[in-house]
Amino acid sequence: MFQVALPAAAETIAAHDAALTQAPRLVEARDIRGWIAVNHFHNRCLWAQEDLARRTQAPAAEIVANKRAIDRHNQARNDAIERIDEFLLAALGLVDPATLGCALPRATAAPTARLSSETAGSMLDRMSILGLKIAAMREQTLREDVGDDHRHCCGERLLRLTHQRADLGACFDELLADARTGRAYFKVYRQFKMYNDPRLNPALVAEAQ
Rank of each mutant, 00 (worst) to 15 (best):
V205P: 01
T112F: 01
L46Q: 10
D85T: 00
A37T: 09
P202N: 06
D167C: 01
R180W: 00
A166E: 15
P202D: 06
H40R: 05
R199W: 00
D125F: 07
L132Y: 07
D79W: 01
A109F: 06
T141W: 01
R160M: 10
I70G: 04
P105H: 05
E144F: 01
A184K: 07
P24Y: 01
A37C: 06
A9P: 12
Q164S: 11
L89K: 03
E207Q: 14
L26F: 08
L168M: 09
Y189N: 07
L132Q: 08
A69K: 11
T181D: 07
D71M: 13
V188G: 05
A8P: 00
P7S: 06
I134N: 02
L159Q: 13
Y195V: 04
P198G: 06
F192R: 15
H16F: 15
M127D: 11
I70Y: 11
D178K: 14
R54Y: 08
T56N: 04
G93Q: 04
D167E: 15
A58E: 08
E118F: 08
T108Y: 07
M123E: 06
A136T: 00
A80N: 05
L132N: 05
E144A: 09
I84K: 10
T119C: 07
N78H: 14
R157D: 08
A65K: 15
Q140G: 05
M123F: 01
Q191Y: 13
F186W: 10
A61N: 07
L20Y: 02
E86R: 14
V205E: 09
H152P: 00
C102N: 14
V95Y: 02
T56I: 13
V4C: 02
A15Q: 14
A8E: 14
A14Q: 13
C171L: 15
D79K: 10
D85G: 05
L94I: 03
A29E: 10
G121W: 03
A110W: 04
M1G: 13
Y185V: 04
R126V: 02
P59A: 08
Q57E: 15
D51W: 09
P97Q: 08
D145F: 06
L161W: 12
V146T: 14
A120V: 02
A179G: 04
G147K: 01
T119S: 15
G93S: 10
M127Y: 05
T141A: 03
N39C: 09
A48E: 11
A184Q: 10
I81F: 04
A58K: 03
P111N: 11
